[in-house]
Amino acid sequence: MSQSTVFLYDGDCAFCSKCADFIDRRVDTPASVQPWQWSDLAALGVTEEQCDAAVQWISPGQPTAAGPEAIAKLLRSAKGAAGLWKAAGVALGFAPVRWIAWPAYRWVARNRHRMPGGTAACSLSQAQREAQRAAA
């Protein structure tokens, strides 16, 4: 298991990479924000399928969180003068917001190729992207 906290995202998706860049620039978090494709998933205790389905928050001694729950943990981990980020993370943890968060997350995931910075490759699963690369 990893000895540090990690937030994994889809590094093959331009929209996801843009969001990760935003996190790196704006959210002072102790987590390492990294693409899952270049991470040791076995050492982190997650599978490719889990990472392909949603972002992952992996922190020693805590259960792994995915999707909006992972985003909430990332925001709550913000350091320094990060009150707004922490507040957003806390809000994302409230039941009514949580009930809406997963359907909203899934909608964004299905439509990430249409989001700013998205590309056609963002609409493909990891298996489809690998098959496309092999055929090229």
Rank of each mutant, 00 (worst) to 15 (best):
V46S: 10
V46D: 07
V46R: 06
T47M: 00
E48K: 09
Q50K: 09
Q50V: 03
C51P: 01
D52E: 07
A54S: 12
A54H: 06
Q56F: 03
W57P: 00
W57S: 00
I58G: 06
P60Y: 14
P60G: 13
G61K: 08
Q62S: 00
A65K: 13
A65C: 10
A66S: 14
A66C: 14
G67M: 05
G67N: 11
P68F: 15
P68H: 12
E69K: 15
I71H: 00
L75Q: 02
L75E: 00
S77T: 01
A78C: 13
K79N: 13
K79G: 09
G80D: 11
A81V: 13
A82H: 13
G83E: 04
G83V: 04
G83W: 11
G83K: 09
G83Y: 07
W85E: 03
W85R: 09
K86L: 04
K86F: 04
G89T: 01
G89H: 09
V90H: 09
V90Y: 11
L92C: 06
L92T: 02
G93D: 08
A95H: 12
P96Y: 05
P96D: 12
P96N: 07
W99A: 11
I100R: 12
I100S: 12
Y105G: 07
V108L: 04
A109C: 05
A109M: 14
R110Q: 13
R110E: 03
N111H: 11
R112S: 03
R112W: 01
R114M: 05
